[in-house]
């Protein structure tokens, strides 16, 4: 029975130490995210700006804001129409 109470004490210490450690570990991680990652995010934002500008480049190339795929579809349809009406 003595060994059982000893086991209980060990389990209790393990529980206490474990929870304190888990909270400390993840708590430090919270601090790291707030102090290191957030400033990094502000300093090096995602290159969203490029993603936004790309369609505008396409727009100018496609003239009058019509996207190239629409132009391609229309020209394909026109050439098909012309071929049909030649015969």
């Amino acid at each position: 029975m003595e060994s059982l109470s000893q086991l209980f004490i060990e389990a209790g210490t393990l529980m206490l130490a474990g929870m304190v450690f888990v909270f400390a570990f993840l708590g430090i991680l919270v601090i790291i995210i707030n102090t290191v990652l957030k400033p990094l995010a502000n300093k090096y934002p995602d290159p969203v700006a490029q993603a936004v500008t790309r369609p505008t480049i396409n727009k100018t190339a496609g003239s009058d804001g019509v996207s190239p795929s629409v132009v391609a579809a229309i020209s394909a349809a026109i050439s098909q129409y012309r071929q049909k009406h030649k015969e």
Partner: peptide, 15 residues
């Protein structure tokens, strides 16, 4: 972290 209490409480329960 809090949810890990399940682990350590069960450790106690197993003993």
């Amino acid at each position: 972290a809090a949810a890990q209490f399940g682990i350590f409480a069960t450790l106690f329960g197993a003993i």
